[in-house]
Design a protein around this nucleic acid. Structure first.
Lengths: 234, 234
DNA sequence: ACTAAAGTATGATACTTGTCATATTTTAAT
DNA sequence: ATTAAAATATGACAAGTATCATACTTTAGT
């Protein structure tokens, strides 16, 4: 792991700290930072753990979820480079959700107290964060709507659209994220068997192509039609 | 309507502007305020309307919802005196949700531009707002979880708990809010018929009592048990 | 007080979805 | 390369839920 890459000043991830021209401040931020490098399937934090830091993802993909019964979790979002992590710990002593890596990842941690003080001294960043929260809330409310009103086929189509928008595809329309059926269903709001069935269905309709663990999107517009009445995440 | 009651300085609603000791600022806020008095079932704003103001509810109850198909909406929340309304318009040009009064209500509107400038000049209030958004996000994610994982009986129990916590009851345990079966189901994430059936079921189990449009909560603890595996809104 | 309209309750039915069982494929370790 | 373990696919079935039809109750307007 190249430690050099994780200096705030050179960081390529679009984290919230970005855009501070005050080099003095960047240096202070740098000093307070801890870098966590973790492999696939590591737990970053768990519900009811005390919140000590607010973090930004430097690389990798993290799932944020609530643990349900019988190992059936509900995944709130998949976060990637530049995304903030644990921000909901701002107003609570204990995490209300869990987070695990689904790929090898590196994460920059800032002590919560420092982060809050920093916000107090940088109102532009505080405002940026406020706008970010507002956007997050919008997405969450869209998720509510979709979970409440879509049938399984629509939910699976909508999840494909979400993954396509959030992680994109390579030049061959291959999704830049690989999920287990379980993770897919925990996000979509159904079961792993239903996801298997519907994805096979989509494949037989030539909307997608299943290649090992990868998914290739053939007919984005058709998928959009299927999830058409839903509101889409952005 | 007593216009006097709606002076910011005397306002009893716990709105976000509260707690500013700077009387000069309060006066400025006062000047920018428009008061909207509306009767039951009035639309306050609708999806895709341009956002001109951020508001606080002075009295009454407002439902905030997304319109779905066949008149089946999804209600995001019921807001009451002191709650902020249209705050999601902070980062968007157009409202992502609709809002309607379900009781006679009065609402204080502040121009969006003024509100944003005001936040810039009062970082403590901006921070309060940030914490509020964080809390809202938490509640929304809990809703996601419940919509994804609860069965109908659990959803109905959970909705009763939500109404009980949010609006409370009078001394006879009569809920301080009256909803149509349709609104109830639009919040719970099911149909009006299912709500009728489950509420009847709860009544026959002596957990609640249905009295005209009112609901009397007899066994709060039993309802909590039914929704036990769910995470509860606070 | 009467009447029409709206809202609610409830049973029957059909459809959707989750669960279970099993076969097949993929992955990872030796 | 071989084998065991894990993940996935798929069909059969059961359970849960939505829809529809209809009766009943409540509300609001005359």
């Amino acid at each position: 792991m190249n430690r050099q890459r994780l200096l705030c000043a050179d960081c390529k991830a679009p984290c919230l700290m970005k855009g501070i021209n005050d080099l003095e401040a960047v240096k202070k931020v740098e000093e307070k930072k801890t870098v966590l490098v973790c492999s696939k399937n590591q737990k970053i934090f768990h519900e009811d753990m005390p919140v000590n830091s607010i973090s930004f993802i430097n690389s990798g993909i993290i799932k944020v979820y609530k643990t349900g019964i019988n190992g059936k979790n509900h995944i709130i979002r998949f976060s990637r480079a530049g995304d903030i992590l644990g921000h909901r710990g701002l107003n609570t002593e204990y995490y209300p959700v869990s987070a695990s890596s689904i790929e090898d990842s590196s994460i920059c941690l800032f002590p919560k107290d420092f982060f809050i003080t920093f916000l107090g001294n940088h109102s532009r960043i505080a405002f940026k964060l406020l706008m970010f929260f507002s956007k997050e809330l919008e997405n969450s409310e869209i998720m509510q709507f979709n979970l409440a009103q879509m049938n399984v086929r629509e939910k699976v189509a909508e999840t494909l659209l979400y993954l396509n928008t959030t992680f994109g595809t390579d030049k061959n329309n291959r999704l830049n994220i690989t999920l287990s059926r379980q993770d897919f269903s925990d996000y979509a709001g159904t079961t792993k068997e239903q996801v298997s069935k519907i994805l096979s269905e989509f494949q037989s309709e030539n909307l997608i192509l299943l290649d090992k663990k990868d998914i290739i999107i053939n007919e984005l517009n058709e998928l959009k039609k299927i999830a058409s009445f839903g509101v889409h995440l952005s």
